[in-house]
């Protein structure tokens, strides 16, 4: 039954992609196909990788409310951009080759992210809840520190930072898309290969250890995957809405109610892609590109999340 639901999700994704590619198509197909195709590929890639990263994160922390972005992971991206603009000025920043900036972002984000988690974990002495709480506080700290630097920047240069700190799919560089795919696909594949181990990790640290799956080592491996997935998606399009991962994982749990990652991972990846492609279609065709996609996701997702919470309470 759950497998059939995965098929339905796949069908929904194909449908959403078809609508996105063909709806209100004016102009020659030789232009539209690669133009929209590239954006579509970015949407699917980002949707899938952020959703899988969230599910991974929720499994190793044993909760359904935390996501990497709540831990301040996206903040890392904004901080890097802010510091770059602050140090080299907006003209030089905008002049940076896209490839260099991408590599810089992905490297710094996963490097700093992993360093951060390692540091936090050492302080937390193996207690995941402590790690998570420290992480949230650290996210607030990063946000404040970034805000401090942003206030010291010239207002004109600040606007440059503001623009890049929202996820945009309107201008996706083809080369970066290929690079991000090359980083993301192996990470997704590695997550898929770990599905049985993830099931065991979801049972909690003691039970996992009893079944021969030492949690600390697996947690490190999963953290590497999470950092890679989020970093490559963020470096490609900018930070997604903080709500996104939360909504998609909650939706995936509703659509495919199971703890088995063999179902949950593809279900989350498909749901994430459907939400993003659908959201972008709505944005481009109905709202006329009036807002960044993250705003649409926040608005629709926030309401949906509230609905899910209330529905669960009544049940």
């Amino acid at each position: 039954m759950l497998h059939r639901r995965l098929l339905w999700l796949l069908l929904a994704l194909v449908l959403a992609c078809a609508v996105y590619m063909t709806f209100a198509a004016k102009g020659s197909w030789s232009f539209l196909l690669p133009f929209r195709g590239q954006k579509l590929a970015a949407l699917v890639l980002v949707g899938a990788s952020l959703s899988v990263a969230t599910v991974l994160f929720q499994t190793i922390t044993g909760n359904r409310i935390l996501t990497p972005s709540i831990m301040g992971f996206d903040q890392l991206f904004i901080m890097i951009q802010t510091v770059l603009v602050f140090m080299m000025g907006s003209a030089d920043y905008v002049g940076l080759p896209a490839l260099l900036l991408f590599a810089l972002n992905i490297g710094l984000m996963s490097g700093l992210g992993l360093g951060l988690f390692t540091l936090l974990r050492r302080g937390a002495r193996g207690e995941m809840m402590r790690l998570v709480l420290t992480g949230i506080i650290f996210g607030v700290f990063l946000r404040s520190a970034t805000g401090f630097v942003q206030r010291m920047i010239d207002p004109v240069e600040f606007s440059v930072v503001t623009v890049v700190t929202y996820a945009r799919f309107n201008t996706v560089d083809g080369l970066l898309l290929v690079l991000a795919t090359l980083v993301t696909l192996p990470a997704l594949w590695a997550a898929w290969r770990m599905r049985a181990r993830l099931d065991v990790l979801g049972l909690g640290e003691t039970v996992a250890l009893g079944l021969g799956e030492p949690p600390r080592r697996s947690q490190s491996a999963v953290l590497v995957l999470i950092c890679t997935l989020v970093a490559s998606a963020t470096a490609l399009v900018g930070p997604m809405a903080a709500f996104f991962g939360l909504i998609v994982s909650a939706l995936a749990h509703v659509i495919t109610p199971t703890e088995r990652h063999a179902i949950l991972l593809p279900s989350a990846a498909l749901t994430g892609a459907v939400v993003l492609v659908g959201g972008q279609t709505l944005l481009e065709r109905v709202l006329g590109l009036a807002t960044p996609i993250s705003v649409v996701v926040e608005a629709v997702g926030g309401a949906l999340f509230l609905f899910l919470l209330l529905k669960r309470r009544r049940a």
Partner: peptide
């Protein structure tokens, strides 16, 4: 092993 107060957060 069966540890004290085994709590499983996953809905199984």
């Amino acid at each position: 092993i069966m540890a004290q107060s085994t709590h499983v957060s996953a809905r199984l």
